[in-house]
Simulated scan of single mutants.
Amino acid sequence: MTKVLVLYYSSYGHLEQMADAVAEGARAGGAEVDIRRVAETAPDAVVAAAHFKTDTAHAVIEGPDALVAYDAIIVGAPTRFGRMPAQMAQFWDTTGGLWFSGALVGKVGAAFTSTGSQHGGQETTLFSILTNLLHQGLTIVGLDYGFKGQMGVEEVVGGSPYGASTIAGDGSRQPHAEELAAARYLGEKVAKTAAKLFA
C-alpha cells in the first residue's frame, strides 16, 4: 500500500477542510494517508488579533526528515500576495539536506490552495508550492480536466489544472462542494499515480 502525506498550513480552517478532502480522496485511491500541518510561526499576539483558527485534529509534522517515509506528498497552503505563506515556506527552507541527498526524488507531489478572491493568486501560489516539489525531484500531478467540475461557469468556484483550490472571500465563505470534490479527485489521482509508480 502506498503512503501519502497531506501537508498543509491553514490560518482560518479553509485549507484544513481541503486537506481532509484530499486525504479522503487519497484513501479512496487505495493509499494509507497521514495529515500533518506545519507549525504556526506568527506571534501569539498576531494569531489572537487576527482570530486564526487554532484548534485542529492534525499534529504538526515532526520535521523535514518525516517526508522521506512517504511515496507521495500533497501540499496545501493559502496565498499571501500570490505566493505561499511564510509558515509553509519556512518548512521547505529546512529541507536542504533532503535536496542534497536526493531523498525525495521520484516521489509524487501535488498542491492545493485558497485565496480571498476569485483572482487572488491561486495559480501563482500553486506554482510557488510546486516549484519546491520540482526542485526536490517529485513527479507532479495536477488537477486535470478529467475533473469536469472546474469547467463550469455558472458559479464562482476554485480549481485550476495546477491544483485544487477554494475561494474564502472575507473568511466567511466555506469550501464549496465542487471545490471539496476537486480536492478528493486530486488526492485520489495522486494515490493511484503513486501506486503505479511504486508497484
Rank of each mutant, 00 (worst) to 15 (best):
R36E: 02
T193R: 09
G25H: 06
E24R: 07
M88Y: 03
A31R: 00
T124C: 10
K107M: 08
V22L: 04
A72G: 01
E155L: 00
L130W: 03
G149K: 03
E155V: 01
S160H: 12
V6G: 01
T2Q: 08
I74C: 05
D170N: 13
G97Y: 12
G106F: 08
L7P: 02
Q17D: 13
A72H: 00
T131G: 15
L98V: 01
A59R: 05
V75K: 01
A182P: 05
Q136Y: 11
G82M: 11
G96W: 11
S117D: 10
A194Y: 00
H58P: 00
A164G: 07
I73L: 07
D65L: 10
T79I: 10
H58Y: 14
S117G: 15
T124L: 10
V75W: 05
R184I: 08
I74E: 00
G96A: 10
K148R: 15
H135M: 08
A19S: 06
D65E: 14
T95W: 11
A48F: 05
A26E: 03
E188H: 12
L197K: 11
A177L: 12
F100A: 13
L180F: 07
I129F: 06
G187F: 00
G96V: 10
A195G: 12
M151C: 01
E16A: 10
G30D: 05
H58M: 09
V47T: 15
S165Q: 02
V22N: 00
G152E: 06
A21R: 00
L133A: 05
A89F: 11
V38Y: 10
G13H: 15
L67T: 07
A26I: 07
D93Y: 10
R27P: 04
M18Q: 11
E179Y: 03
S128W: 05
G146A: 14
A69W: 09
T193D: 14
Y70C: 00
A103P: 08
A23N: 02
Q122D: 14
L98F: 09
D170T: 10
P43V: 03
M88A: 04
K3T: 05
V156C: 09
S165T: 11
V47M: 06
V33C: 03
W92D: 10
I74M: 03
A57C: 06
F147V: 02
A182C: 12
G120Q: 08
D170M: 02
L143W: 09
G137F: 01
L197C: 04
D144W: 05
L130A: 01
E188G: 08
S11H: 14
R184H: 06
A39Y: 13
